[in-house]
Design a binder for these strands. Structure first.
Lengths: 207, 207
DNA sequence: GTGGATAGATTGACTGGTCAGTCAATGCGT
DNA sequence: ACGCATTGACTGACCAGTCAATCTATCCAC
């Protein structure tokens, strides 16, 4: 019973990562000290450097861990044989549920990486771009099927869609928008309806 | 001829602000040193502290100067008697033209303030919120006129619209999206068409 | 079982470098 | 000669990362 039994040896590396999420969310990456993370994890200062080569690498690890899960999800959604609306709905649901489940983690990823294109965004630009690219693929397919207008660039549409979701999360993160289960479900519907159906009331098809 | 004549005394304060835009855009607020700004402005280190109480206050000044112009523009657009599409188009045009005219300045505002909600965004949350609020008002009016669907929250729609624009600017800033006069004009049209008309091809109004 | 050897985990005081902000001195226009 | 503009060396604080010392688990010889 030495490997994965209950109450196994405490996983300090995990404890440090979890503590870092809380500290980064509370104080921001630049504003916090490495000792804040160590204290939050209940661990000695030096131990962080036993598991990670630098403070930056802690954030990188958190981001890659989480972003990888999202990319995988988009990949799977894209492969399914369902209408575009459902595909985009699934992506919106996943991201919003991620926030509901772990708001601190999403705050760190968005505020410190995704929207911090100067510092960490630069490092992970490739990963971030990959998400846009895959959403763009979904849009392109819908255009080929005649469901989406052909005269709006797919990559542009992808940025609009993802940008809208991220903007709403940012609104929740900084208390600009009301939160709660109802708001989350409504947001999922509204973001898809806005991007796919538009804000205008339905009008007759062009002659 | 002492006040505003050509070749008046060099305005060091202005020189510092202009230099700060370039330096912040190039290196980021946190990564740059005060001496970088002074050097770029061709001015002694200490002079910056003659005109500004701190490094932060330089950024605050830049942001408030520029953001105020934008708020004023939205206020004027809102007051006009034109269709929603034109109102939103005017806002999109203004922001995109601002980027065309001074990309460094827009980069600084977006990267260091608007999307840095942890540090400076917090300070200026009120100002940022005011922009969302005014766009929301435009949406609400359109809903009352029956032009926009009533079942999408106006504040939500406002964030989607503004978020889409900001996401596209971010795409330009970090080289994810092609730039140029054509791209800029296309973007203006596409952002309005996407948010108002939706990505889906026109369908008949619901029975 | 007991001693003790080995390796990895853990500790936290310390170092070196960085940099925002200060200030006394100097320049210059009026 | 007065006051504002300008200079840049200096200070004090801060903090990421290092490292030698200590602890603990595991295993082997006997």
């Amino acid at each position: 019973m030495s490997s994965t039994g209950a109450k196994a040896v405490p996983d300090r590396r995990r404890a440090i990562l979890d503590a870092a999420v809380r500290v980064f969310a509370r104080q921001g990456f630049h504003a916090c000290r490495v000792s804040d993370i160590a204290d939050e994890a209940g661990v000695a200062y030096g131990l962080l450097y036993h598991y990670f080569p630098s403070k930056e690498e802690v954030l990188n690890t958190l981001f890659l861990e989480r972003w990888g899960v999202m990319l995988q999800m988009i990949r799977e959604v894209d492969a399914e044989q369902i209408p575009v609306r459902e595909k985009l709905g699934a992506i919106a649901s996943f991201i919003i549920d991620s926030y509901r489940h772990d708001p601190d983690m999403m705050k760190v990823i968005i505020v410190e990486v995704t929207r911090a294109a100067n510092s960490f965004g630069q490092t992970h630009l490739g990963q971030i771009r990959e998400a846009y690219r895959m959403i763009g693929t979904i849009v392109t397919k819908a255009q080929r099927e005649g469901v989406f207008k052909p005269d709006i660039d797919a990559e542009f549409a992808a940025m609009t869609f993802y940008g809208a979701i991220e903007q709403v999360l940012t609104g929740w993160i900084f208390g600009l928008l009301p939160q709660g289960d109802e708001a989350f479900e409504r947001a999922k519907q509204m973001v898809v309806e806005t991007v796919c159906g538009g804000l205008e009331v339905a009008r007759a098809p062009a002659a």
